[in-house]
Design a protein around this nucleic acid. Structure first.
Lengths: 207, 207
DNA sequence: ACTCAAGTAGGGGGAAACCCCTGTTTTGTG
DNA sequence: CACAAAACAGGGGTTTCCCCCTACTTGAGT
């Protein structure tokens, strides 16, 4: 198992290196920016690359995307502070092998490396509860299109901070029906569960 | 020279520890939150404490302030990503012994420790050019200023979509206390009694 | 005629936010 | 010291959100 590390914070880089080595892995290369990281991945083809997302030049997401597009054999683990849903979704879409929040690195990195070594995907256990809805971007209008007419109508009312009871009264339907629609919307938008998150999403994406 | 380190990112903590030890200093204690840091400073009275600013419970600034007020002999170095003027100004006002940006830690920490050891103050060379004016004091900030320190801290965590339970765990206080603070915040901001308005207000006014 | 998606509606339950009330302790300042 | 503000903590309550599950109706394909 040859591993490459990239992080622009030298102290974190040293800490990660020491930790990974203590787990019995061989750290072949370290670097502090994405361009170098990608060059090293291209030439040395390490088994695993552990990348920070915030790096000058090319960030970890871009490196992941290029690794994916060039069909390089290296499996990419993103070790990051970013909790934004869209970032995780992009990483996922580009075939990330592992996604860990820095704050939980100590407990999870070992597990993650084992899972990734077996060729499976590891996602931080804590991520679900930590995911944050971020600001709207252009390509998210696309996901709204998956909603049906009634769902969009209800979503707009949610953005206006109406409760399910109020929406039900306005549309002359049962509160239970509104709740049913809310559930479908949440499913279609792939919002994290167990959280009061639809309302925030709605207020950020409408008005 | 006995040194205490506090940082809530375990990897950075390890990296800093390795680095400081490589410079020939003795790291007496490490911890990952401000409350523990202050307790350790009170009891062990290390010569130097190197603190992160972002920590759950009590942040590095608060620890500095308490060390200052209790006239403890420990000299405090803040090792941080924060470039905001007001943060640095507060640190300065509370007698910070050193202020270093994490991105320049490698080049500056050694120099800083020597200077602080001599009893002088060290400020990151890069800081002047990096200092950022924080958000302008518009009318929204005016109302925020009516909040107490703890209330602001909790408001930020609400903006990060933490539940009261999670906030309570992070700050080592009871869930009931967090709920009490929420109520005070709502009163001070004169928010409507409807559900979740605080959450929406917070996400719109922070970040 | 049959299928499928949409919309409708209900039971039951859990988590979280917010309200009311009551206290105590800590801390800063006059 | 005294007083007020702040933080801390608890009981008990309501509403809302969101989940699970099941159903029925309707309209539009191929």
């Amino acid at each position: 198992m040859r591993i490459l590390l990239a992080d622009d914070h030298p102290l974190t880089l040293m800490g990660t290196k020491a930790f990974v080595e203590a787990l019995g892995y061989m750290v072949e290369d370290v670097c502090s920016n994405g361009i170098t990281a990608f060059n090293l991945i291209s030439t040395h083809k390490p088994n695993i690359a552990i990348l920070d997302i915030n790096m000058p030049g090319m960030d970890g997401l871009e490196v992941l995307e290029k690794v994916n597009r060039h069909k390089l054999p290296t499996r990419v683990i993103l070790l990051t502070m970013h909790k934004e849903m869209t970032i995780f979704n992009k990483a996922n879409q580009w075939g990330v092998a592992g996604y860990i929040l820095k704050e939980h690195a100590q407990e999870e990195l070992q597990k993650c490396l084992e899972v990734v070594k077996r060729g499976e995907q590891y996602v931080s256990k804590n991520l679900e509860s930590d995911l944050v809805i971020d600001a709207p971007t252009s390509d998210q209008n696309y996901t709204i299109e998956k909603l049906t007419f009634t769902e969009k109508k209800i979503l707009e009312l949610i953005a206006q901070q109406k409760t399910s009871r109020q929406i039900a009264d306005m549309l002359f339907i049962s509160e239970k029906t509104v709740e049913g629609h809310r559930s479908s919307i949440i499913q279609k938008l792939e919002l994290p569960k167990e959280k009061n998150t639809l309302l925030i999403w709605a207020t950020k994406h409408f008005k």
